[in-house]
């Protein structure tokens, strides 16, 4: 099943102004179930912009974007929020965690907004995902007590807690040392093997090589797609 389908997507910042900037130029892109795609490119190539549009955090200036067959531009903010909550998991370079929260609270945050799991079962549910990322026994620790690698694993557990079909990772290893970066990538690979589609934005060729497909972006355009 095709999760993401984009046709001639363009994104222009400050349109009509002196500082107008075209971040994406008529991009065609798609993600199917089970894909693991690395998007590579230099700074300003439009990688993050593309990821934000895929994640319904930003809207394209022109072109058509369908998520699971639904036309995203016609969706309300509420509908987009539901997609972000249930269909997509985000993993960010700076982890996107609130330092004051406990690990358990951080992981259960998406559940608070989905209302699908009763409070009494939330803890058990979250602990299962913490175990999946190898953080058993970390539930009561606060986020600021964790190392970078552990924080990223918490972020991954949070991304998974609503069982999304797509994981979007924006430089997930950018703030980690080599060993932790490798561990995080192995974890993402494992998720992919379990059926999740993963899209990773990265500068690192080693990280990109661990993905099934690599796409290079330059000046807002897709230049090449190499499949393993």
């Amino acid at each position: 099943m095709t999760l993401v389908k984009m046709n001639k997507i363009s994104k222009i910042y400050n349109k009509g102004k002196k500082n107008q900037f075209k971040a994406l130029n008529e991009i065609d892109f798609s993600v199917d179930e089970g894909d693991m795609i690395a998007i590579r490119g230099s700074s300003g190539a439009g990688k993050s912009t593309l990821l934000h549009i895929i994640g319904c955090m930003d809207t394209q200036t022109s072109g058509h974007y369908y998520f699971c067959g639904e036309y995203v531009k016609d969706m309300t903010q509420q509908q987009k929020a539901v997609i972000r909550n249930k269909k997509i998991g985000f993993v960010l370079q700076d982890f996107g965690l609130l330092e004051y929260q406990s690990v358990l609270d951080a992981v259960s945050l998406p559940l608070l907004f989905s209302n699908e799991i009763p409070v009494s079962k939330m803890k058990k549910h979250c602990l299962e995902y913490l175990a999946e990322v190898g953080l058993q026994g970390y539930a009561t620790k606060t986020v600021n007590e964790l190392s970078g690698g552990e924080k990223q694993r918490v972020a991954i557990a949070r991304a998974l807690v609503n069982n999304p079909s797509l994981i979007l990772a924006d430089e997930p290893t950018g703030a980690l040392d080599e060993e932790n970066a490798y561990n995080v990538m192995k974890l993402l690979q494992k998720l992919n093997e379990n059926g999740k589609a993963v899209v990773i934005v990265t500068h690192d060729s080693d990280i990109a090589n661990m993905c099934k497909t690599q796409i290079t972006m330059k000046y807002g355009e897709l230049k090449s797609a190499d499949e393993k």
Binding site: Q78, A81, V82, R84, L98, F113, N162
Partner: peptide, 16 residues
């Protein structure tokens, strides 16, 4: 601001 971003990434809408 960061909190709002994190909440929204986790699927919070304006009502939440």
């Amino acid at each position: 601001k960061k909190e709002i971003i994190v909440f929204m990434l986790c699927g919070a809408n304006i009502r939440h």
